[in-house]
């Protein structure tokens, strides 16, 4: 909003602004989840809620990060805020003896 500037003689005054409109900035507040996450070196992401943060903290135990291919994937995705979820389920076709029809089936992870 433009300020109204009124000249009176040699001096002037500015009408103080009485209204302002804008968009909020989000600020995280440190709480118990941040204290727990400090122990495992997993900082809260900007604007992350307790619910999402709690899921990531708990994910550390199930999907540990490390130097292996699997570990790097786990660590990277978690630190960026992407949790790994099961998307497809592969069911093997079995013969009457309960063995896979294809010999030695393998699905790369």
């Amino acid at each position: 909003m433009a300020n109204n500037v009124n000249f009176i003689g040699f001096s002037f005054y500015i009408n103080p602004q009485v209204e302002f409109e804008g968009v909020q900035t989000t600020q995280n507040i440190v709480n118990h989840f941040d204290l727990a996450s400090d122990l495992i070196g997993l900082p809260r992401l900007e604007g992350e809620s307790n619910i999402d943060f709690k899921k990531r903290i708990m994910d550390v135990e199930v999907h540990p990060s490390g130097g292996t291919y699997e570990g790097v994937i786990n660590g990277l995705s978690r630190d960026l805020g992407f949790l790994r979820e099961k998307t497809i389920k592969i069911e093997l076709l079995l013969n009457s003896a309960g063995e896979p029809i294809a010999s030695n089936p393998r699905v790369p992870s």
Binding site: Q17, F20, Q24, Q27, N31, H32, N50
Partner: peptide
């Protein structure tokens, strides 16, 4: 999980 986790602020101009 309902503990306070984030607040949202708006800075007002110095002319206000």
């Amino acid at each position: 999980v309902s503990e306070l986790d984030q607040l949202h602020f708006l800075d007002l101009p110095s002319t206000m």
